[in-house]
Design a protein around this nucleic acid. Sequence first.
DNA 1: CTCTATGCAAAAACTTTGCAGGGAT
DNA 2: ATCCCTGCAAAGTTTTTGCATAGAG
Lengths: 117, 117
Amino acid sequence: MDNLFKNTNIKQTSARVELLRIFADLRKPICYEDIKENISMDKATFYRNISLFEEEGIINSFESNDKKRYFELKSNPHAHFICKLCNKIECIDTLHINIPEYKIDNVTISGICKKCL
Amino acid sequence: MDNLFKNTNIKQTSARVELLRIFADLRKPICYEDIKENISMDKATFYRNISLFEEEGIINSFESNDKKRYFELKSNPHAHFICKLCNKIECIDTLHINIPEYKIDNVTISGICKKCL
DNA sequence: CTCTATGCAAAAACTTTGCAGGGAT
DNA sequence: ATCCCTGCAAAGTTTTTGCATAGAG
């Protein structure tokens, strides 16, 4: 993680360290609301740092059906399933989509999960 | 289209006819902003009828990166590619994803399109 | 000292809701 | 007369921005 601050344009601050630690620990998509109780920074700082991380290619983001933006450390490419009824997000590691015309960052599948069916 | 009003719980009104005609004509995902100049109904009516159509299974929706919700008549299943840079949405008809565990309504792929690359 | 990061509050963007009036049956 | 639909305005939700202060090098 220290490497990250050396190898990018991102200056090390306690808020950024805190944020990256949370992403690394949870290893699943999270939105601001998910972690607002667990972080000490203001929401403005959260969103500003998130934008920075995304510009630097450290995290991916996608919109869920609940109108919230979810963020996740870039790692093995995988898809996300979002249930339209319970809003649960599940990672699908087995789906690898490749389309020559595009550089794909994220695949989001929405529908209804087994539980809700 | 008349069938639709007979076969569902949806009562026929001029706003609903207008809306369905637009969806049928354009045959691509649209958000409120895309058509607000071309419709006579208020945005509240737009969104209320959209919700109704979605509940009745007539349209699908998904969130784009621009925080707007896009709507489309349910038709041949297909995926959407959204460019993170120019926000353009392209339909991908050749991608058919099937996962036994889920009922899939929509597949959204985000990344960077050929033009922006 | 300078330059960037942060917190707070306010603004912005999109969607939803409350309510009163209108239309259809 | 009843029931639902609609428009308008206001409220709601999430994210962004402005500005003054704090902090790092």
